[in-house]
Structure formats: C-alpha cells, structure tokens
C-alpha cells in the first residue's frame, strides 16, 4: 500500500502537493518532477475530485496522497492557500500517531516550495533540511 521510500542508493522523503485546483496541482507536480527526476515520490491532492473541475481541498484526498508516498524518512506537504492548510491539518489528524510524526506541513509558497523541495529531496536531504530550503523562498527576493 505504501510506496517504498528507498530509491536507488539512498532514502528520500516524499512530497505531497495540495491545491484547490487539480490543474494547478498537476502543473506544480510537473515542475517538481522535472527537478526531482524519478528520485522522489510526489503525490497530488488537487481539487475535490479527480475528473471534475470543482475547486477546493478535501482532507480524505490529502490523506490518500500522504499514504501514497509515506515513508520513514518523512513526508513534506506543500499547500496553496487558506483552507488547503486546514484540510491538510485534518488529514494529519486522521493519520496514526506513528505516521503523523514523520509528516510536516511546510510554510513555503507552493510553486517555489515544490521546485526547491523536489530537488533537495532528490539529493537525499532529510525532512527538516528540505523544508528549510523550501521555506527560504518566503524571504528570497524574486527580482534580485
């Protein structure tokens, strides 16, 4: 049921992309996957259902996404805005305590955070270090 987190020669964390929009989640996934190659398990929880365009976030979908990439080394959740965070919190509460401890909600902006986290996760960096890299985007000036 749970994806193996042992990829190649080292263990890497998993990533979950949470967005109100399934299309946005898919687009962010494509960016992140290009940075990570096949080194990192990345799952999506976008919109309220797979094939509809209803915007929103759903804790059960987020929970399923966590379980798809869950591993001992940890799972980092990246959310877009507002209720995405609340739904992610509820999803974590639905996880068994032992698994919840290895999950972390990131304060990083979604696009920058996913790109940065995917690359640094693929380098085998631990959960907290990957999140620190992603959250650094909060204070990084885009315009130089």
């Amino acid at each position: 049921m749970y994806a193996a987190c042992w990829r190649g020669q080292r263990e890497v964390i998993g990533l979950v992309i949470v967005s109100h929009s399934a299309k946005l989640a898919q687009g962010v996934y494509e960016l992140a996957a290009q940075m990570a190659g096949d080194q990192v398990g990345i799952s999506l929880a976008g919109g309220l259902c797979d094939d509809c365009e209803t915007l929103g976030t759903d804790a059960q979908r987020i929970l399923t996404a966590i379980e798809e990439v869950w591993c001992e080394d940890g799972v980092l959740l990246l959310m877009d805005v507002g209720s995405a965070v609340m739904s992610a919190e509820i999803a974590l509460e639905m996880l068994p305590e032992a698994r919840r401890r290895n999950c972390l909600l990131s304060n990083a902006p979604l696009v920058e955070g996913a790109i940065v986290a995917a690359l640094h996760a693929s380098l085998g960096e631990p959960l907290q270090a990957v999140n620190a890299q992603a959250e650094a985007a909060l204070s990084a000036s885009k315009l130089g």
Binding site: M35, E112, V116, Q133, A136, A137, A140, G144
Partner: peptide, 19 residues
C-alpha cells in the same frame, strides 16, 4: 555582471537569485 553577492551553489533557490 549584476554585482551580486556570493550564493551557495548547492541551493537551487540561491542559484536562481543570480538572475
């Protein structure tokens, strides 16, 4: 060419700031 300060080349975020 932009007179930036030195950034950590092991960080994609910092690398992007070189513009």
């Amino acid at each position: 060419s932009r007179n930036t300060s030195a950034v950590d080349l092991k960080s994609i975020l910092q690398l992007m700031q070189l513009q």
